[in-house]
């Protein structure tokens, strides 16, 4: 099997908490990301789904080297990035770009659109000739759907709408012609009508430019427009992973089922039976024993308090971390 574009194995990110007093012996630790594995091929889109606090954004930051790993391996185009020297990272960052959630906050208010999009070229000292640089900036703006590009070059972010700002962020990511785009909640701050445009744009870039996309979101409703596969995360772990169709039509993990059930249906006739989980993701310091999901799980049994389930294949490329999967499936059939 050829090496995938991105190969993530056993990635772990722990944050030690500063002890309140100096007499505390036990070092307390936040398990932000805890043993995550997945592959991502060129031109493929993987949606990483979960509630805030599940570790999906931390995982993104480790992939970009913005947070050092505690353990594990990240291979990008066959090159190991975990613990790699800055030169290796510097080269890798030309090919891995990120888009952030808040288009109001992620653009410097004092820079023009042209300057923002030029920034990656400037940082990597690429396309240093004025004419060449200008051409690439215009092409990136054009690719991001900001047309005509000249019209936007000299504008400031506060003169643009939310959707246009997010397009500027996308243009700045595209200017280096990346192979992997990490998009952290790129549409959650936007109006629903604008979301569709941005999602379509990302989906289009994936197909036309063969850019792999890691799409991070809390909303299972937005993934179908772009993702090929879905990984559902809970408390630092992947609890279900599989092709979009499999996960959305036959979700196996109770957490996935709950997440899917609360996606608002755009029609009162299709109103689903909601599985509303009470409370919020527990704090990742004091992890529950056994399955991490059992305190909120609607179908937990006594054994779930003891056994920490591992991902097990339930179909082609579809894996679930729940000890009751087979049992529950045979019951419903």
């Amino acid at each position: 099997m050829p090496e995938p574009l991105l190969r993530v194995r056993g990635v772990r990110k722990l944050f030690p908490i500063k002890a309140a007093g100096w007499r505390t012996h036990a070092q307390r630790v936040v398990h932000a990301v805890d043993d995550v594995n997945f592959d991502l091929g060129a031109g493929e889109a993987l949606a990483l789904v979960g509630e805030s606090g599940c570790g999906k954004s931390t995982l993104a930051l480790t992939l970009l080297g913005l947070e050092p790993l505690t353990a594990g391996s990240i291979r990008f185009e066959g090159q190991e990035l975990a613990g790699a020297p800055p030169e290796v990272w510097r080269l890798a960052r030309r090919h891995i770009q990120m888009i952030f959630q808040d288009p109001y906050e992620s653009l410097n208010p004092l820079m023009t659109v042209g300057e923002i999009v030029a920034e990656p070229l400037q940082v990597h000292k690429l396309a240093t000739a004025t004419e060449e640089r200008r051409r690439r900036i215009m092409a990136a703006l054009d690719d991001a759907g900001l047309k005509p590009a000249q019209h936007f070059m000299r504008r400031f972010p506060h003169e643009l709408s939310g959707g246009q700002r997010q397009r500027v962020a996308i243009a700045a990511a595209l200017v280096l012609e990346p192979r992997l785009l990490v998009a952290d909640e790129p549409v959650s701050m936007l109006d629903v009508s604008i979301r569709a445009e941005i999602l379509n744009l990302l989906a289009d870039l994936k197909v036309r430019r063969q850019i792999a996309v890691l799409f991070i979101t809390h909303d299972l409703g937005t993934v179908s427009a772009i993702a090929d596969r879905i990984a559902v995360m809970y408390l630092g772990r992947i609890v279900e992973i599989g092709a979009v169709n499999d996960v959305l039509t036959t979700p196996q993990h109770p957490y996935t089922q709950a997440l899917l059930s609360v996606v608002p249906a755009p029609n009162p006739r299709l109103r689903r039976q909601h599985i509303i989980l009470q409370g919020e993701t527990p704090d990742p310091v004091n992890l529950p024993a056994g399955c991490r999901f059992h305190p909120r799980c609607p179908v937990a049994i006594a054994r779930c308090h003891q056994v920490d389930p591992v991902l097990q294949a339930v179909g082609a490329g579809h894996a679930v971390a729940c000890i009751r999967t087979t049992e529950l499936r045979t019951n419903t059939l």
Partner: peptide, 22 residues
């Protein structure tokens, strides 16, 4: 148009119809 722009997770293959302009 607003309804067509709305993603429906039960129809994964469907492409979203964005409303052009503002």
């Amino acid at each position: 148009a607003l309804l067509q722009a709305f993603p429906d997770p039960t129809q994964p293959a469907q492409k979203l119809a964005a409303i052009p302009g503002a």
